[in-house]
Simulated assay, not measured.
Amino acid sequence: MDSVELQARLEALTHEHRDLDVAIDALRARVGHDQIQLARLKKRKLRLRDDIAHCQDMLIPDIIA
């Protein structure tokens, strides 16, 4: 992937991560919310965070000291 594709992927992942924040908050606000669904959303959010970190690492070159 080139830097343009990585930047686009990073933006998409970040947007999805924010959307999951909203979905998790909405699910928590409901009375008697589904714990399994909440756990799945949180797990997906963690995977996205790892993917975001990976994309950021690929965009920032290593500096050899």
Results as ranks from 00 to 15, higher is better:
Glu11Gly: 00
Ala12Tyr: 02
Ala12Arg: 09
Leu13Val: 05
Thr14His: 08
Thr14Pro: 02
His15Cys: 07
His15Asp: 12
Glu16Asn: 11
Glu16Ile: 08
Glu16Trp: 07
His17Phe: 15
Arg18Gln: 15
Arg18Glu: 15
Arg18Val: 12
Asp19His: 15
Asp19Leu: 15
Asp19Phe: 13
Leu20Tyr: 09
Leu20Asn: 10
Leu20Ala: 09
Asp21Asn: 15
Asp21Val: 07
Asp21Gln: 14
Asp21Met: 11
Asp21His: 14
Val22Cys: 07
Val22Lys: 14
Ala23Ser: 13
Ile24Gln: 06
Ile24Lys: 05
Ile24Trp: 05
Ile24Asp: 07
Asp25Lys: 12
Asp25His: 08
Ala26Asn: 14
Leu27Pro: 04
Leu27Trp: 04
Leu27Asp: 04
Arg28Asn: 07
Arg28His: 11
Arg28Asp: 06
Ala29Lys: 01
Ala29Ile: 01
Ala29Glu: 03
Arg30Pro: 00
Val31Asp: 14
Val31Pro: 10
Val31Thr: 12
Gly32Met: 08
Gly32Ser: 07
His33Ser: 11
His33Cys: 12
His33Tyr: 15
His33Pro: 05
His33Ala: 09
Asp34Ser: 09
Asp34Cys: 06
Gln35Glu: 15
Gln35His: 11
Ile36Met: 06
Ile36Val: 12
Ile36Leu: 12
Gln37Asp: 13
Gln37Pro: 02
Gln37Val: 13
Leu38Arg: 03
Leu38His: 02
Leu38Trp: 02
Ala39Ser: 11
Ala39Trp: 04
Ala39Val: 01
Ala39Asn: 10
Arg40Met: 08
Arg40Thr: 13
Arg40Cys: 04
Leu41Met: 14
Leu41Ser: 02
Leu41Ile: 03
Leu41Glu: 04
Lys42Cys: 08
Lys42Phe: 01
Lys42Gln: 14
Lys42Val: 06
Lys42Ala: 05
Lys42Trp: 01
Arg44Val: 00
Arg44Glu: 09
Arg44Trp: 07
Arg44Asn: 09
Lys45Met: 10
Lys45His: 13
Leu46Thr: 08
Leu46Ala: 13
Arg47Lys: 11
Arg47His: 10
Leu48Pro: 03
Arg49Met: 09
Arg49Pro: 00
Asp50Ile: 10
Asp50Glu: 15
Asp50Gly: 14
Asp50Thr: 14
Asp51Thr: 00
Ile52Phe: 12
Ile52Thr: 06
Ile52Pro: 07
Ala53Thr: 12
His54Val: 05
His54Lys: 04
His54Ile: 04
His54Ser: 05
His54Phe: 09
Cys55Thr: 01
Cys55Pro: 00
Gln56Gly: 03
Gln56Ile: 03
Gln56Thr: 05
Gln56Trp: 00
Asp57Gly: 00
Asp57Cys: 00
Met58Arg: 10
Met58Cys: 02
Met58Tyr: 01
Leu59Glu: 01
Leu59Val: 00
Leu59Arg: 06
Leu59Pro: 02
Leu59Gly: 04
Leu59Tyr: 02
Leu59Ile: 00
Pro61Ser: 04
Pro61Lys: 04
Pro61Ile: 02
Pro61Leu: 01
Asp62Trp: 02
Asp62Arg: 12
Ile63Lys: 06
Ile63Phe: 04
Ile63Asp: 06
Ile64Arg: 13
Ile64Thr: 10
Ile64His: 12
